[in-house]
Simulated assay, not measured.
Amino acid sequence: MKPTLLAIAAAGLWTAAATAQSVTPAQFVAKAGASDKFEIESAKLETSSANSALAQFASKMIADHTQSTQMVKQAAIADKLMPKPPMLDAMQAKDLAALRAAKGSSRDALYIQQQKAAHADALSLMQSYASNGTAHNLKAAAGQIVPVVQMHKDMIDKM
């Protein structure tokens, strides 16, 4: 018997929901922190881009992701967690190294590519935790961060 498209879609939604529910508050804090750190560190390389729109975007990323890091940290403390300093995951470290090695318009193109992927991941994380998170203050912070990340995603998708 062949699975129907509806059954396949339902299974995919169930898997996404199960994954979101399985993220502990500490895991959420770590993932959000890593995401923000990657955004900030990669943006620092682009603030001097010859592409003024990209340089402005990078400056906005530094400001907005510094703010979201603080929001998540404060929410974690309010939820009785002791957040650790943000750390890049292995893929983010690799992407940042590649960005550092690139120059000029090649760096700009790589930055845009990385930002599209990073913001899609960040948006998914924030939306999932805002819907399914178990720590009240972190869930509220994720909900406040969602529209900001969506705005960033919309901005980078146009570049």
Rank of each mutant, 00 (worst) to 15 (best):
M1W: 06
T4S: 15
L5E: 14
A7K: 14
G12K: 14
W14H: 12
W14D: 08
W14P: 00
A18R: 15
T19C: 06
Q21W: 12
Q21M: 14
V23I: 14
A26C: 05
A26M: 06
A26I: 01
Q27C: 01
Q27F: 05
Q27Y: 07
Q27V: 02
F28N: 13
A34L: 01
K37A: 12
K37N: 09
F38Q: 03
E39K: 09
E39V: 00
E39W: 03
E41Q: 15
K44P: 04
E46R: 00
E46V: 02
E46C: 07
E46H: 01
T47G: 04
S48I: 06
S48H: 15
S49R: 08
S49G: 06
N51T: 00
S52T: 15
A55S: 13
Q56H: 08
A58N: 09
K60P: 00
M61E: 14
M61D: 01
A63P: 02
T66I: 04
Q67D: 14
S68P: 04
Q70K: 11
V72L: 08
K73S: 13
K73H: 13
A75L: 08
A78M: 09
D79L: 02
K80A: 10
M82D: 14
P83M: 05
K84F: 08
K84A: 15
P85I: 01
P86M: 04
L88K: 10
M91H: 13
Q92R: 05
A93K: 15
D95R: 15
D95N: 11
L96T: 09
A98L: 11
L99N: 06
L99W: 12
A102G: 05
A102Q: 08
K103V: 11
S105H: 10
R107F: 04
Q114V: 00
Q115F: 08
H119W: 07
S124F: 06
Q127E: 13
S128R: 08
Y129G: 01
S131P: 00
N132R: 10
G133E: 02
L138G: 07
K139W: 09
G143H: 08
Q144K: 15
I145A: 05
V149H: 04
V149P: 03
M151T: 10
H152S: 01
D154S: 04
D154G: 02
D154A: 01
M155S: 05
I156G: 00
D157C: 04
